[in-house]
Amino acid sequence: MGRLAYVNGRYVPHAQAMVHVEDRGYQFADGVYEVVPVIDGVLIDEEPHLDRLGYSLGELRIAWPVSRNVLKLILRELVRRNGLRRGIVYFQVTRGVAPRDHKFPAKVKSALVVTTKRMNPPSEAMLRDGVAVSSQPDIRWTRRDIKSLSLLPNILAKQAATEAKAFEAWLVGPDGTVTEGSSTNAWIVKNGAVITYPKSHDILGGITRLSLLELVQKTGVTLVERGFTLKEALEADEAFLTSSSAFLLPVTSIDGQNIGNGKPGPISEKLRAIYLENVARQIGAAK
Rank of each mutant, 00 (worst) to 15 (best):
E34W: 04
V35L: 12
V35T: 05
V36R: 11
P37K: 10
L43T: 00
D45C: 09
D45W: 03
E46Y: 00
E47C: 04
H49N: 15
L53S: 12
S56R: 03
L57Y: 03
L57W: 01
L57K: 04
G58Y: 04
G58R: 05
R61V: 07
A63I: 01
W64F: 13
W64L: 14
W64M: 14
W64H: 11
W64E: 09
W64I: 04
P65R: 11
V66L: 14
S67P: 05
S67V: 04
S67F: 05
S67M: 09
R68P: 09
R68D: 13
V70I: 12
K72E: 11
I74E: 08
L75R: 01
R76G: 15
R76C: 12
E77S: 05
E77I: 00
L78G: 02
L78S: 02
V79H: 07
N82Y: 05
N82W: 06
G83T: 01
L84F: 13
R86F: 12
V89P: 07
Y90K: 11
Y90S: 11
Q92V: 03
V93C: 14
T94G: 03
R95I: 00
G96Q: 04
G96M: 09
D101K: 05
D101W: 03
H102Q: 06
P105Y: 08
P105W: 03
A106M: 01
A106P: 00
K107N: 09
K107H: 08
K109C: 13
K109S: 14
A111Q: 04
A111S: 10
L112E: 04
L112M: 14
V113Q: 06
V114Y: 07
V114R: 08
T115W: 10
K117D: 08
M119W: 04
M119K: 06
S123F: 15
M126I: 00
R128Q: 14
G130R: 09
V133L: 15
Q136Y: 09
I139V: 15
I139K: 14
T142V: 10
K147H: 06
S148P: 01
S148R: 01
